[in-house]
Amino acid sequence: MAKGIKVNASEVIERLKASTSTTTDIDLANYFEVSNKAISSWRTRNSIPLEFLLQACAGTGEKIDYFLFGEAFPRQQTESLETRIDDFWITTMKLTGERILIEILEKHAPEELAFMDAEETLAKGESIGMAMLIFADFIERKKKELVDSGRMTNDEFKEYIRNVDRYDLPYFARAIKHRNKNGPQ
């Protein structure tokens, strides 16, 4: 979890169980396709990997705030994410994320790829795939809100989506410029 956010992993796990219709740690582990020791480890470390929270969001339609803080915000009146994204799409996006990760690393950081084991590649790739799935859902909801309502044209919407969350680009530009001056970090 992000540093600075205080959550109780046991409470988050209980909310995950309630939302995924599981009752035991073993059931929840099966839902996430991890060992039951992973769930115990989350409690012990008081930390739950973000990819599993995102997977739960994708699978249940709940917002991440609910899992983290127990705040149940009203759901939108549109169909839930669960009805739009089934297990096939979740699996497809995980595999796509893994393939994208491998291709990017092969091209830009082959030495990093050479030292990654299959399990690490799979985990990072699945995380990328789930992030893509969540972002695709975000785009779909925003399109309904902005384009379908007539508040934006398709071209304006494309530009809006390109710039979503890009407020930190100047920071990255400075970081890259600094990195180039001092060589690889």
Rank of each mutant, 00 (worst) to 15 (best):
W89N: 13
S41E: 08
L68R: 08
M93K: 06
T78H: 09
R75Y: 05
A109S: 12
N46E: 09
Q76E: 15
F69D: 04
T60A: 04
W42D: 00
E51W: 01
L101F: 02
H108V: 09
L54N: 09
E106R: 13
E103I: 08
P110D: 02
E98W: 00
G70K: 07
F69A: 08
G97K: 03
E71P: 05
G61A: 07
A56G: 09
E82S: 14
F88R: 14
D117G: 05
E98V: 01
I90S: 06
A58C: 11
K94R: 14
T60E: 04
F115N: 15
W42A: 00
F88T: 15
R99D: 10
I48P: 03
E82V: 13
R75L: 13
F88W: 10
E82H: 12
G70A: 09
L101R: 01
F115I: 15
A109P: 01
L105H: 04
L101V: 06
T83M: 11
E51N: 11
D87T: 08
Y66M: 09
R75C: 06
E82N: 13
R45Y: 02
L53A: 05
T91V: 11
I48F: 04
D86H: 10
F88N: 14
P110K: 01
R75S: 12
L105N: 04
T44Q: 03
F67C: 05
R84K: 14
D65Q: 12
E106S: 11
Y66Q: 07
G59T: 08
A109E: 10
T96W: 04
L68V: 08
K63T: 10
F67H: 03
L68A: 08
F115K: 15
I102F: 01
A56I: 06
Y66S: 05
L54E: 11
D65Y: 07
L95K: 13
F52M: 11
R84P: 05
P110E: 02
F52P: 02
E82G: 10
E103F: 04
M93N: 07
E112K: 10
T91S: 13
I64H: 01
F115P: 05
P110H: 02
F52Y: 15
I64S: 07
I102T: 11
S80E: 14
A114V: 09
G97L: 06
I85C: 04
A114I: 09
F115T: 15
Q55D: 12
K107L: 13
D65E: 15
I104L: 11
S41V: 04
L50Y: 06
G61W: 01
E106W: 02
W89T: 10
I104W: 01
E119Y: 03
I90C: 06
T92Q: 12
S41P: 00
L95Y: 07
R43A: 00
P49W: 03
E62H: 04
A72E: 15
I48D: 02
S80H: 10
G61D: 07
S80L: 15
P110Q: 02
I104K: 09
A72L: 14
A58S: 12
T78N: 10
M116S: 10
T96N: 11
G97A: 09
Q55G: 07
L113W: 00
L68E: 07
I104H: 05
T83Q: 12
D65F: 06
E51T: 10
R45P: 01
I48C: 08
E98G: 00
A58M: 12
R99W: 01
W89I: 12
E62G: 00
W89F: 13
T91K: 13
Q76A: 15
D65I: 10
T92D: 12
D117C: 05
E62P: 00
E71T: 14
I102P: 03
